[in-house]
Nucleic acid binder design. Sequence first.
DNA 1: CGATGCGTTGATAACTTTCAAATTTAGTGG
DNA 2: CCACTAAATTTGAAAGTTATCAACGCATCG
Lengths: 241, 241
Amino acid sequence: MLTQTAIRSVAMPRPVVSTPVVPMPNVPQVAKHAVGAANGVLEETMRLMGATMTYPRGAEIFGEDEPSDYVYQVVSGCVRTYKILSDGRRQIGGFYQRGDIVGLQFAEDYVFSAEAIADSKVLVIKRSALNALVDRDAAIARELFALTSRELRRMQKRILLLIKSAQERVAGFLLEMAERAPGSNVIDLPMSRQDIADYLGLTIETVSRTITSLESAAAIEVPTSRRIVLRSRAALSRMNG
Amino acid sequence: MLTQTAIRSVAMPRPVVSTPVVPMPNVPQVAKHAVGAANGVLEETMRLMGATMTYPRGAEIFGEDEPSDYVYQVVSGCVRTYKILSDGRRQIGGFYQRGDIVGLQFAEDYVFSAEAIADSKVLVIKRSALNALVDRDAAIARELFALTSRELRRMQKRILLLIKSAQERVAGFLLEMAERAPGSNVIDLPMSRQDIADYLGLTIETVSRTITSLESAAAIEVPTSRRIVLRSRAALSRMNG
DNA sequence: CGATGCGTTGATAACTTTCAAATTTAGTGG
DNA sequence: CCACTAAATTTGAAAGTTATCAACGCATCG
């Protein structure tokens, strides 16, 4: 019995919907694409078929016990998926930002719940509509498959992180976040320390201390708690193992 | 810098092939299946199209730097995927037994290497052939997609394990292994303690001690080190969190 | 029988959590 | 814009867990 504090604070914000979910009875015909079709057919399709929803910071997008009828693509903001364990600990499944798709990995029920970390816009599409598309458009099938494989690889990297020490986990996390803003060394974290802790399987105190020590080691700068500047990727990579 | 001992012992057995890999230039026409087709089209196809390979205990099936041209389905025996980290630690990606498919999650290169833990038979199929099938048979596409989703869920369970204490990890691992032999409380472990340790992100000593303590707590019996009998699933589940 | 690999057990050190409190930041109302 | 409260983050000290180092037992195999 160890670990996560979790639910030291449970904000309970109001779920809000700006655009109603449009059921998708008629699947629009999407042009077939040859083998090797460019990435993006799916995204284009979601834009065409999906309904845009807006969630304020902290709002629930779906609960883990709900039937997983929809798939979501983040347009702006940031979404976290999470699961509350029987003993109250919280495990964060992942953080999803612009372009990321949430809900692919689930079976009949969602295994995780999803919440907006910041005010977020999300495209919603019926899973059944997506499945219908998969049946008639091989390009979409391939793209969806590729997306899922990518998710698998992300998860494997995650597993690699979780077998390591606290310092390696935090360093790896920062590098992962940095990848989302290529070219810049500035990371604006949309999530709290508690979120990071629950993502990495550490306590909030350990995350905080580790960040402080990375700063002392001149690997990063921390102008504000939510903003981190990479000073030495090499040092971080070294710590990442 | 912590953790895994890894590579305390590196057996280097001889790679062996019994049946040559058959390149699959001509994709056999597979009957189309309606939506909701039964699970198994893919397996059937692999039996038809795949080449059977035999690997002795310890033989390498593929290396992580090789191009990932093939996908494998375990027919008998047990396969482990693993990765050696820069500092020599080893992370095990997973254990694959009868019916499991290895290699789906990989991109251009394998991210992991794969080895036979016990003498194993494996069906091998070209990834390109599989992709071609996906393009022309929606049922296969759906099944492959479902398989990948299942792998994702397994991995998520794994992540849930890795954020927990040593006792919870080992208990969870045993329950996971028990699921593969439904109806029986006897688990015959094909893998060593070192394998288990590298799978769970623990040391071999911690795994050993934890198993001993589970035995003391009357949750399991350990007639031989590779055989474990579940005495109280309830107790194990409780420990699993 | 001696070597070798694997698993177990013991003692100590290192790391992470837990509990507690101080400090900083963010949000709200005047 | 400032004051005030609540929330988030950081820091400190002690306790608990896991890794590390070392030795031992046990089986297999030549």
